[in-house]
Simulated assay, not measured.
Amino acid sequence: MTSETSSTTVAGTGTGTGLPGLVRWNKVPEVTVYFWVIKVLCTTVGETCADLLNEKAGLGLTGVSLLMSALLAVVLVVQFRTKAYRAGVYWLAVALISVVGTLVSDNLTDNMGVALETTTTVFGIALAVVFALWYRTERTLSIHHIDTTRREAFYWLAVLFTFALGTSAGDLVAGKMGLGYWVSALLFAAAIAAVALARFALGLSAVTSFWIAYVLTRPLGASVGDYLSQPTGDGGLGLGLGTVVTSALFLGVILALVVYLIVTRKDITEERSAPRHA
């Protein structure tokens, strides 16, 4: 699940600015241990923040969903306008997409009465369609070359559906199947470990293993968040943290890690100029 050099010359490709010799750098971070740690933390925040806003904001599930979707749209506009990966903007977009993906799933199940089995299936199909269109258009699903607007659009659409799918699948396993939060967390952690084993021992492709792990980290983080924030009567650990403290705690850790990455640039792909196309 590592990455490769990811600069691309856009001249002569039919995408980007079309200026001769201009290189547009990859818009997403290098896949390192920092990437996976922050990703899991963002999924936890997505779950707890969605619950917090729904309970405390007084806007109702639909109102909170509209508000967070608007904030996400603004941040994505900023993300698309950047010329290269910027850790602060990128991870803010991921955190907001985590919240919005959770709210989309919750709206369907809580407000519209759609069964979790149905939402899990629908989001799984939607994600598969995005991947199919992405591959048909670009002939790759690699995140190491998110260096055109079209590829970035496919990337963020896929990310959104992974969060929505992970939310529904996690709620289905933890709640509907009655396994509880901590058992669900162990189950999804074991599934991720199996993917890593398949990648490094059995030769599963880097792209396939990345996206499977990306989906699985969503219910893993959500299960951890619910277990820490909920009282024992609701299947939680009973620490009394609640959604407020849990959200603040994990947001603080995310902020510290992102600042560290901004300073050290450990998640920046090595910059090499690509040769010009004739």
Rank of each mutant, 00 (worst) to 15 (best):
E55W: 07
D226F: 02
R272E: 11
L249A: 15
L261V: 06
E30S: 10
Y181T: 02
T264F: 00
T15V: 04
L53T: 11
A164C: 06
V94T: 06
G101V: 00
V183Y: 07
S229C: 03
A201R: 15
L52Y: 15
P219M: 05
A115M: 03
E30V: 05
T9D: 15
L41P: 01
T13F: 05
G233R: 15
V31A: 11
S168A: 14
L157F: 13
Y260C: 08
V10P: 01
C42V: 01
L172W: 12
V28Q: 05
I192H: 05
G180C: 08
I254R: 04
L197V: 13
D147L: 01
T9N: 15
G101T: 02
R218C: 14
A185K: 11
V37S: 07
H144F: 08
L261A: 06
V10G: 09
W134T: 04
L141M: 06
F35L: 03
R86M: 09
V159Q: 00
G203V: 10
H145S: 13
G166V: 00
V259Y: 04
R276F: 09
L172P: 06
L179Q: 13
G180A: 06
V99K: 06
A169D: 00
L72A: 13
A57G: 11
A206Y: 00
T269C: 05
L53Q: 14
L220Q: 02
L108E: 01
A278K: 06
R86F: 07
V75G: 02
G238N: 03
T48S: 14
Y214S: 05
L133R: 08
R86K: 12
W211G: 11
V215N: 01
V74K: 02
I254K: 03
C49E: 14
M177K: 07
A153M: 07
I262M: 11
P231N: 07
L220W: 02
A70T: 09
E117A: 09
I97H: 02
T149V: 07
